[in-house]
Amino acid sequence: MSKPALTEAELHAYVDGAMPDARRAEVEAYLAAAPDEAARVHAYEVQNTTLRRLFDPLLDEAVPERLRLPLHERRRFSLAPYAAAAAWLALGTLIGWQLGSSEQMAAASKLDLARRAAIAHAVYVLEVRHPVEVGADQEAHLVNWLSKRLATPLQVPQLREFGYALVGGRLLPGDSGPVAQFMYQDDKGQRLTLYIRRNGDDAQETAFRFSNEGKVGVFYWLDGQRGYALSGEIDKAALLAVANAVYRQLNP
């Protein structure tokens, strides 16, 4: 007879192959003389193999379209986007306060294009590990994805002539729907963001406007269906030069 009798936990470890070989041999010897427990072990082992035979065919099935990544379509109503919007608003209020521009503090719900862009800029340029959701190495996917979500074709301007390379982009909640943000970075780590939202159907165009949001400078303009805001913590003239290039590339 083996030394200690089999504990319940050991019996399961034996069934699951989670037992050291030395003890395993002892247990086998024990089970040979304990028909009731041997029957349980056998039944549990059959359960294990039968479970796998029952459900393993799922592994070979084609994954349904709706489970393919990335997951865009929301299957049913969800509070998540609204919760995100509420969190965004709260964050906006907080950062608006930190940016130190007093006249807009009171009206967090009326954040305009420049202000929202500056907030999004301030939030994400600080990110070291996760500045963007989709990186520049996936540029085609990034553009398709954001174009689809904004329901308007987007383009990513190239800013290499100014020393800025695309880092990538992300989707953000705006006050009336999804917003895209593209981020650029130069070799010193200076970052610019281009914030693009979809306007209402009353398409309009405006000239460049400049807004100073704390340390962040923003050039913004409306161009038909889309509103753009280019944000950066660089010299106003330099930012204007980049904004002009963005505009030219989007309106060749």
Binding site: F55, D56, L58, L59, D60, E61, V63, L67, R68, L69, P70, V134, G135, Q138, A140, H141
Partner: peptide, 18 residues
């Protein structure tokens, strides 16, 4: 095309379905 995380995630989908 999937990002690195998405590609890794996709590998696990059949087992998650099972």
């Amino acid at each position: 095309m999937l990002s690195g995380f998405g590609a890794q995630l996709a590998e696990h989908i059949p087992r998650l379905r099972r």
